[in-house]
Structure formats: structure tokens, C-alpha cells
Simulated assay, not measured.
Amino acid sequence: MVTLKRVYVFATCIISGIAGLFTIISLATEEWIVTDSAIWIGDPDVPNKIKYGLFEGTFTKRLPTTITLQISMTCLMKENVCAVLCAGSSDARYELLRRINDGTETSPDDDINCPAVSLVNSVPRRFSTRLHNNSTDTKKFINCGVWVSTIFFLVLSLFFGLISSAMSMYNVVTNPVQVFLSITGLYIYNGIAMGCCLMAMVLWGIMHIIITYHNIAIRPTLLGMMTSDKRASLGYSYWINIISVAFYFGSICILYTRQMILSKDPGYKIEKQVENASPDGLYLY
């Protein structure tokens, strides 16, 4: 009787599940884009810290006092633009983005109603900033299509990763005949999960090089009051997806190793011959 090598399949279950967990962490955390050196135009000695994920983030302003505001991803689908803004309500954020996109936003400071995460002292929250003449490349919005696609591929990667984990456990306790439930299906599910995760990283990485590396896409940078040109970088929420990719690849390697070990087992070869001759096509290994 050939050894089933179920431990390899169980290892695939654990590893694929962990890879999916890292994808969840990536989606939930707020450090896809980070900078701690964005500066006000005309006042380069006052750096500001911005970090945000695919949904929310924080903006720490240090002029004239230190205050941390909650910012949220806001998109206009028809215009294919997104920015990370704060306002008193979601409707106010969409209206603010529309004004910025249309070039009709004239208020130098519109965050009086923004939700504050922390405030260092009691200095009034309205800052004495003013609008500057925008250069032709100042308004670099986050591409809405890339944002949606990144989320889509990550969710798809998570879905197939969890399917792989569940089907691996199923293969530990039984020997299914159907391709989509068998070991072959595990190859497919892990491959799709890995490919989707890679695609999300490629899309967001290219957009960062083109857009957010030069303009972090918050209100002050879009209006020319602040610059983040060449001061932003990809945070751990982005890079953690490499772990997921590596784990999915590791699952495929484990399954291949199992297959190689079984192929060298004489009992496996005999049972494969019996299987091929069996009219009902049942797996006997």
C-alpha cells in the first residue's frame, strides 16, 4: 500500500491559509503609501506625515500645531480620479473632490470639520495656509481604475487562497475524483491566488511610480499648498503581499515535491496502472 503523503497536503492547507491572512492584513492596514517629509510650500522646515491604505489613513499636520486627521479614499468613477480626503461626511468628501477636479476649490483650508485622531494642544485647528498657483502637473490624482483593480485582484487572491486551504483539508481526509476538488485543483487555486496577488502589486507599483511618488494625492498637494514630490514610498501594507506570493509559490512547490516522491514509489506506479484500467476511474492512492 502506497504512502499517501498527506502531511504535504496538510502543509499546503496551512501555508495557503497563512498567505490569505497576510492578504487580509494588507487590505485592512493603512500603510500602502507613506511619507513623513511632505512640506508646505514656502515653509520647508515643517515636515508633515501622511500614510494611507486602500480605504483610510491619517494626515499629521505640523503647522501651526500638531494635529492628526483621519483621511479616506474618495473616488469619482466617471472621472476616473481618486484622492485621499477628509471632510465632515462622505458626501462632503465627494463634493470636495469634484471641486478640486474641476478647479473650483478656492478655500485655503477646509478641514475644520474633519475627524481628528489626536490634537497636541489647544491652538485653533484652522491653519494660516494659502493657495498657490498650480503648475500643470500639480494635480496628479490616484487612478480610480487602478484602485478598483488592485482591490479586485487582492480579494480574488484571498478567495482562491481560502479555497485552496479548504480543498487541501478536504484532500487530507478523502481522495476526490473531480479535478477541481483534487490535488490538480490545488495547483490551479494556488496559481490563481499567486497570479492575482502579483497583478495587484504590479498595478499599484506602476501607479506609484507615475503618480503617488510625485503627488501623494491629498488636498494640500492637489491644490499646490504642499509638495510630496519624490518624498513618498510604498509602505509595509504593500510589501507584505510578497509574503503571500511566496507562500502560494511554496504551496505549489510542496505539492510538486509530494508528486515527485509518489512517482518514485513502486506501489504508486502499480496503483496508477490499476486506476487507469479501472472503469469507474476511481483514485486508489
Rank of each mutant, 00 (worst) to 15 (best):
P176E: 12
T138S: 12
Q273A: 15
Y283N: 12
L85K: 01
S107G: 12
G205N: 08
V9C: 02
V46R: 12
Y94M: 05
S233V: 05
S263R: 14
G267H: 06
P279V: 13
E79N: 10
T221I: 04
A193M: 03
P220D: 13
I270W: 03
S182L: 11
V245W: 01
M226C: 03
W239E: 00
A19R: 04
S251L: 01
N113E: 15
K61L: 11
V148P: 04
M207N: 14
D111H: 09
F247M: 15
S263F: 10
Y248L: 05
R130I: 08
K5Y: 14
T74N: 11
V274E: 10
A246M: 08
N133E: 15
V81Y: 03
T184N: 15
L63N: 08
A11F: 07
G205E: 08
I18N: 05
V155T: 09
L186I: 13
A11I: 06
M225N: 06
K272P: 00
D91P: 00
T23K: 00
S89W: 06
V172G: 06
A193W: 01
G191H: 00
N215M: 09
T68R: 07
M225A: 11
M73V: 13
K61A: 10
C197N: 10
A83T: 02
T65V: 09
M167P: 02
G17M: 04
D102V: 03
